[in-house]
């Protein structure tokens, strides 16, 4: 009976263990590179957010300290912000007149 339970435990949790190992092996540097490149594009259009470069710096600090989990979360947050600021800039270029409350 115990062997049966152990078998089901392994089978049901296999995807969880697998994803955890994949998560740990994600290379953070390309995400950070992408975040830097994207925030620079938004900055060139005058739409950089004040918080994005701080997230990138914090991700770099965490990575240097060996805290991959924290670094990955911060790098993803930085990329997400950078992409949103660039979307905001591109949207403003074509839709700024929608903001005229007259």
């Amino acid at each position: 009976m115990n062997k049966f339970r152990l078998f089901f435990f392994i089978v049901l949790n296999a995807p969880l263990f697998l994803s955890a190992s994949l998560y740990a092996s994600v290379d953070i540097n390309p995400i950070l590179d992408n975040a830097r490149m994207t925030v620079n594009k938004a900055a060139a259009k005058g739409f950089e957010w004040t918080t994005t470069r701080k997230l990138i710096e914090d991700a770099e600090t965490a990575l240097a300290a060996g805290d991959k989990d924290k670094s990955l979360k911060l790098a993803k947050a930085a990329l997400n912000e950078a992409e949103k600021s660039l979307i905001q800039a591109n949207y403003a270029e074509t839709h700024w007149q929608a903001g005229i409350p007259l």
């Binding site: 005058g46 957010w49 004040t50 918080t51 905001q88 403003a92 700024w96 903001g99 005229i100 409350p101």
Partner: peptide
Amino acid sequence: KEFFYSKRGQLNFSCAD
């Protein structure tokens, strides 16, 4: 004028807002 009416920043506000 475009600057004044364009939403920007994390809060997505324009000067006009």
